[in-house]
Design a protein around this nucleic acid. Structure first.
Lengths: 293, 293
DNA sequence: CGATCATGATACCGAAAAGGTATGGATTTA
DNA sequence: TAAATCCATACCTTTTCGGTATCATGATCG
């Protein structure tokens, strides 16, 4: 049966039009080359090269076959290279699910760095509401997720990549609006706006712990799912809120963010299934280490 | 070394994810398949398939390799098919040089028929002034030429494909203008417009022979290279001319073409080098036979 | 929990194929 | 006409391939 080796032989022969020199270039003696070419022609049922006493010439079929064989060999070699590249995690696909907060903190740098280092990886990024993310990663719909630390989850490996402090968002006419910093005592009797426990429970928990450590229960007036909503409601004067510092970016002019003494913090983590064999994931994880600082 | 056979094995294996069934489909027993896959993986330095006790799964590199291998195999098989098709003259290139007259007679039908029968042949048609055509065919710049019969030419095979009669082109106010037919006696003392001997010598020769057979020498007043020019000069009343009947098509309204008794004729021939090995030429020649009538 | 089954790997053997050396035949060159 | 060039062929050795038999490892089932 015809194989790629015969194609390589033929291409070299076609380039030299000389059995002896082609064989030499192939690190082969001349008779095996003659035989392989003859076998190739026999299997194809087509004469590819015309042997004259002085110099050989390609037949029309041979010259067509030369074109095609070059293309086949190139794609063959590329297939082999691609397999290795895919194995090294330099070629393929990597899908990352992330919660919205990550878009304001670690995601941009991480994605930029990864794309620059692995341009051949098709990086798919999709935002997912935080509480759905763990399930999606577990189900294999994402190679990794960026979310607030959910504690230990069976079947997931988790690594902190970013620690973010909360700050106090107040509306312009609020009594704290001009302050540089605030402490837990300042929010003791303030009605707070917070995320519902099921959407971004880590923030909610951090807020509650912060208040409890100071000896009181927070007064949650309003619950919203999205941080944008919370900021908006603060702007409308319906209450104040503890929000991640990165949310400053989407704070409206009428909202000011005040640093908190001993500010509570929430942790961004990477989560992935340790059984995930996507080689691209390894590189992504390796790259996410230096970015930790 | 990796070869295309291992790729085929791998593709089948990847499609079944089962060594036993893949081997069966390949008309092979299972151990050789296992060994070939192992060898493939070893040569690539990449694990392509994960063996579990219940079912095998592709690694990421394997699934990439599957895509690529399919493409390689397809192009490999196509290269082989193409070589055969090229050898049968169904794929490749065929260049035909033709004199202008052919565009009014045999060329359109021939080209249409050939293109319809051999759509994968890149048919290159180029008009060439008649007296240059023989040289170009001899030099190999055309696979064949369509021209007036030049008699025997060393190194060329020649085959008549069309016999065309000459007719008499006269201007509107000429005394013969109303006639249905004419004979040699009618042009005895007429000043004729003819092609120069070096451009379309066959027509010139046919005209001269026609007159000489009737016992007189033609009076050539004007010589032109192109038939269009001749027709134009006739229209301008500078003389009358014997032109191939197909030239009626480009006759101006003021020119009428009159049939000649015992009309002289010129022969269109195909000319090609018998040493030309282009398989497409054989088919073209075969096809030009039925068109002879 | 042990027997059985399914699945792929390994060991070993004979057949096929590949490459090497020596040489022959045809044609060109000196 | 002798020498040289070039590809084909003959023959041998080595390598590779596929086949059979068998083993190791988990999964399945009574």
């Amino acid at each position: 049966m015809i194989d790629i080796r015969q194609m390589r032989y033929f291409v070299t022969l076609a380039e030299t039009l000389h059995f002896g020199r082609a064989a030499e270039r192939l690190h082969l003696s001349q008779p095996p080359l003659s035989r392989q070419i003859a076998a190739l022609e026999k299997d194809l049922g087509v004469r590819l090269i015309e042997r004259h006493s002085r110099q050989a010439t390609l037949t029309h079929a041979g010259s067509r076959f030369l074109q095609d064989a070059r293309a086949v060999i190139a794609s063959f070699d590329e297939a082999c290279r691609n397999a290795k590249a895919a194995d090294r995690g330099e070629l393929g696909e990597l899908s990352i699910g992330f919660m919205m907060h990550a878009a304001y903190t670690v995601l941009p740098g991480l994605a930029r760095g990864y794309i620059a280092a692995y341009p051949e990886i098709d990086l798919k990024l999709r935002e997912v509401v935080p509480h759905a993310l763990i399930g999606e990663v577990l189900a294999g719909r994402f190679d990794a997720g960026i979310l607030f630390s959910p504690g230990a989850v069976r079947g997931l490996e988790i690594r902190p990549i970013y620690q973010e402090r909360l700050c106090l968002a107040v509306y312009g006419s609020h009594r704290l609006a001009g302050r540089n910093s605030a402490g837990p005592e300042d929010i003791k009797d303030e009605p707070l706006i917070a995320t519902s426990a099921d959407s971004a429970s880590m923030i909610r928990k951090a807020v509650e712990d912060y208040c409890r450590d100071a000896g009181f229960e927070p007064t949650i007036r309003l619950q919203a799912q999205l941080q944008n909503t919370i900021i908006n409601l603060v702007a409308e004067g319906l209450g104040i809120a503890l929000v991640p510092e990165s949310m400053r970016r989407l704070a409206l002019p009428s909202v000011s963010c005040i640093s908190l003494a001993d500010a509570p913090s929430v942790e961004h983590v990477l989560a992935w299934r340790p059984t995930n064999l996507n080689p691209a994931l390894k590189n992504f994880l390796a790259m996410s280490l230096p970015a930790r600082a």
